[in-house]
Design a protein around this nucleic acid. Structure first.
Lengths: 230, 230
DNA sequence: ATAATATGTGTACTATATACGCAAAAATAC
DNA sequence: GTATTTTTGCGTATATAGTACACATATTAT
């Protein structure tokens, strides 16, 4: 085995949060080193003896103090040998989803070194972090159609209209409310709660909750969630 | 930047070939080192200054002497810290498709250190190579439904029935010939050739060819290839 | 009380997916 | 050279799923 390999392994995460009908990405400000003060994706070098997944969780904890609802490996970026100016570094990238409670918290606690940036307004970032974000955004858009990941961006109990708006916002397209509701409910993994939510004006909305077990049961029976729009 | 990171980066490839109604995976026999004589996936450590993609192509050339039709990053395996007994190594894995001509060639040239192994008969392999193959097999099955990757496993000109059998074999399910043909042809990216093919007994088959440009045009118009089976 | 706002619901129409069987062209057997 | 076997090629009726579309209800604000 070749022993002089001098390539570093990093993990980076694109953490999505949804709030007020908008999708946000978590950025952190570097405190030390060559890229000091620059805004980048949370992430960093993997430690010796550490798994990739653990490294992501550790970085998210250290740099942003958050725990995520959903984490999935996105892509490994290593086709630009000079993506990091210091060293050859490959980035094993992940995307993650958090629910809105966390979003508020992080935004409140560390205005200087952590922020939620609207997906439609991402500044130019170092490394290939813009590319990583684009890749993650495409992935989340695709997944919304065939995996119930939207629920990881909403609170446990949510009005149906929030789910609609989430889809409409992220996919950047209009949705027919009646057909959407009919389709989603037909799968049977959404349950009516007892509560209703009053949001100022308008008729109070019935709250719903996602039932992961019902979803798993469907999957096991070969019934796949899928939703399309006109 | 931490400089004592001691993690190696390898690439591995699951190369699929299709022949005689069966799907095969390329295995190579290690010539040196700790894992000498063992059958493994083609792959190895990335060289300094080398991109991941180049590393895969290099390894496929060096170890198996082949050029692939299709190459796609699969997944990066690094959650088992001891997947390689010598060192902490992460494997950036790819899957690849070759057409049948190559399949014969490789099998002929190096019976000792390269072989095509039937996907349904993969032996126990070192590292996590069985897991990598499973992951690749799942991916190819999924992709057959929504990307025209089957054509990369067939010769340029092929009878329709070969395409049918390829789908039936890889997806391990029966297919209605009439509906399959109707659906595939409806997309318009398959063209009749002038030639016919005589295969011993039976009516000679019309040859068809895949037109990548027609497919790209569809994609650009937002029409997505998709095929399902009863 | 009235207006404004957001929620909640059903039906007719269109398009796609599914099920299904027989004739044609060649090779092989007799 | 005729009959049999093998494989290709093709159309229609039915069922399922997707799409388009409008008005009543429950609340808050004025």
């Amino acid at each position: 085995m070749q022993n002089n390999q001098n390539i570093k392994v990093a993990v980076d995460a694109v953490v999505f949060g949804y709030h007020n009908n908008a999708l946000y990405v978590l950025l952190v400000q570097q405190k030390y080193g060559f890229y000091k003060n620059q805004w980048v994706l949370p992430g960093g070098l993997v430690q010796n003896g550490e798994t990739l997944t653990k490294a992501v969780h550790r970085e998210l904890h250290e740099e942003a103090g958050i725990k995520v609802n959903y984490l999935e490996q996105l892509y490994t970026f290593g086709d630009d040998v000079e993506r990091d100016k210091r060293n050859q570094v490959i980035s094993v990238s992940y995307f993650a989803l958090v629910n809105p409670g966390l979003l508020q918290l992080a935004a409140a606690t560390d205005a200087q070194d952590v922020k939620w940036q609207n997906i439609n307004n991402i500044p130019s970032l170092p490394f290939d972090h813009n590319l990583i974000i684009d890749t993650a955004f495409k992935r989340i858009k695709a997944k919304l159609h065939y995996q119930p990941i939207g629920f990881d961006l909403l609170p446990k109990k949510f009005p149906f209209s929030d789910l609609e708006h989430l889809y409409a916002t992220i996919l950047e397209q209009d949705i027919d409310r009646r057909n959407f509701r009919k389709k989603i409910l037909s799968f049977g993994f959404i349950k009516k709660c007892d509560e209703k939510q009053k949001n100022g004006s308008g008729r109070p909305a019935q709250l719903y909750t996602f039932e992961p077990n019902k979803y798993k049961a469907l999957e096991e029976n070969g019934i796949h969630f899928e939703i399309k729009f006109a």
